[in-house]
Amino acid sequence: MAKLFNGLLGIGVALALGGLLMLVQGYNPLASYGALLQFSVADSYALATTFTNAVPLVLTGLSAALAFASGPVNLGQPGQLLMGALAATVGGLFLDLPPLLMVPLLVLLAMAGGALWAGLAALLRQVFQMSEFIVTLMLNMVADFFTIWAITYPLQDSTAYSPMTPPIAQSGWLPEWGDWNSAVVWMLAAVAATWFFSRRTRAGYEWRIGGQNSLFARLGGCPVDRNFVWVMLLTGALAGLAGGLVVMGGPHRFLRGLGANDGWDGVMVAIVANNSLPGVFLYGLFFAAIQSGALGMELITGVPSEIAMVLQGVLVLAIVASREALQQVTARLAVRRRALERRA
């Protein structure tokens, strides 16, 4: 209840500030927000666009939230996403199986690509005690340039003018039903599986406790070092899955700038959701709605779509700040109530 209120409060404050900004710039905030709503949730097409946009956001968000809640500071979602996308692309370029086999295989390849990239950071941590915080950040750069090299030279589509690969085999394209892309189904499945894992399995319990108090978990008999590696592998796989689904659901090839902001947006979603998994899902959808609605807003009222970035920034600040403020306020109220009870 308090969480819901906090989220709504933050969103309200952010929208009010965004509206104020538009007013100052001479735009009509009400018409703009109307357009935003219309192009993000009003009809099946708009809703489908929002859900499709949410796929990488939610998956990288899950990756970051699960990692942060379990202890490891995996900030490698951008790199793991790229490596996952590359792995799925390579699979799609060199294999052609029936779709029923091809799609799951490419999805697995994408997850393996992301897991491998995160696993590298885990390995460096286990062997050389290098902080995964730094290593995952640096590996983002490496992945960035490695994938650019890969699509510029060995995997380049010779008929294209900018660096990109040829399209992957059609059997690896994610099926679509009207406006809806089946990438959304994979995302929903990943949300459900991650939640089940975290809440119902023994490993999920150990990860959660280890993230809160690693020494306690260790003394309780949890294999904290081994768990660390598994957290990195699984959260890497989630980010890699995001990359794979982006390729298989959208352009069907790896082109330059693919998934550019998705990794960092996912980290942001995790922070806003305070690492709660249902929270990641809801906030991921919400941010995706703003991103898809902003284009419509530009179309109708001429407000530049960059306002979406401003709104996102204000949202993060407003939600996180109101969470802290609300905690203070409720705590004070509780104390006052208790003091009154005792005086009586």
Partner: peptide, 20 residues
Amino acid sequence: RMGGSLSASVVENAIMTHHR
């Protein structure tokens, strides 16, 4: 620090080690 995790629930604290 060593005996429990203060932010975890009573259940989560009570089943540590027993969970294995």
